[in-house]
Design a binder for these strands. Sequence first.
DNA 1: CTTTTCTTATGACTAGCTGCTAATCGTAGT
DNA 2: ACTACGATTAGCAGCTAGTCATAAGAAAAG
Lengths: 182, 182
Amino acid sequence: MKQSKQKRKQDLVETIENNPFITDEALAKRFSVSVQTIRLDRSELGIPELRTRIKQVAETNHDDVKALTNEEIIGEIIDLQLDETAISILDIHEDQVFTRSGIARGHHLFAQANSLAVAIINDEFAVTGRANVRFMRQVQAGERVVAKASVTKKSDDWPVITVNSYVDQALVFKGEFVMSRG
Amino acid sequence: MKQSKQKRKQDLVETIENNPFITDEALAKRFSVSVQTIRLDRSELGIPELRTRIKQVAETNHDDVKALTNEEIIGEIIDLQLDETAISILDIHEDQVFTRSGIARGHHLFAQANSLAVAIINDEFAVTGRANVRFMRQVQAGERVVAKASVTKKSDDWPVITVNSYVDQALVFKGEFVMSRG
DNA sequence: CTTTTCTTATGACTAGCTGCTAATCGTAGT
DNA sequence: ACTACGATTAGCAGCTAGTCATAAGAAAAG
């Protein structure tokens, strides 16, 4: 069935969206137009060719370079006394755990604690110098991690922050962060 | 470096397994043999061509709810000998640094090293038990961090992995990870 | 009836293969 | 030394699913 160019383009986008594995030839048959017309439409719509599309689908879930959340702070700070204590919460999401075991990847707990340690120091250029961490118990997806930080050694050069993270009442993470002023 | 056919075939399987997006030409270069040899090896091993491989990857995680082969890794692993050594690279992006100082937030370096430590252990349920890390030098946006991991203590219960990360030749991160098998 | 837009056709080119045949290399056995 | 053998390399036709550029024909709009 022949349709208007507008309509065909709309349908084309939809069709490809829910079946990225379709070739131009198949599309041509489906819309009763020539392959060339499909190519024209695709180029006008900025839709890449089949192989590129497949690759994109493959990459979205295979891509190794998975970044951590791009927020300045991992977790939500709910209490903060500068240079004293701080508390943050982090809800462990489905994609922060190992798909096989369902256990939260360690670096997320580290990131939460590290963020908190940085936040507690009243300095614009505070960075972590050293850290000593321990994962006490595995955390599952859906659990809420509460991190409690306190400055255990006040020093302008090397303040030390201790972070304890809990799920309910259970200690899941212990960390000691030695900071440095940038 | 030339190797025996057996060894090459083994390496070929591994290489393709953790990077299905590699062409025969690239493989030929990597193993210092001709493209024809790679094709021969592939056909003997029953490994399909690039496009088919990509399609398989795309398909398995298109209709798949629970992907098992999902390697959640921060950074790109460029070399891996299970239970021995591993190397990964991570390009520090604009939004992985503190907006004020431009210094990479520590947990990204930790995440890279932690991922590598998990990957090196030949176990589906390996998790980090303890870690001792040190940030030697600040890393700026745009810099490429190369993490080198090696198993320093082989143990079924508590293997220890040492990770050293470099920017150019400079050591920027040192970490010791004590793993536990889930 | 023109003009413009749309559609289709054509030819030349590409990557990354397959499948086949033929030649060469190095090593080992007799 | 000769030969046999496995491993390697080379070359070529053909394939898919495209690319780009150009041109010509059809349909719609002015």
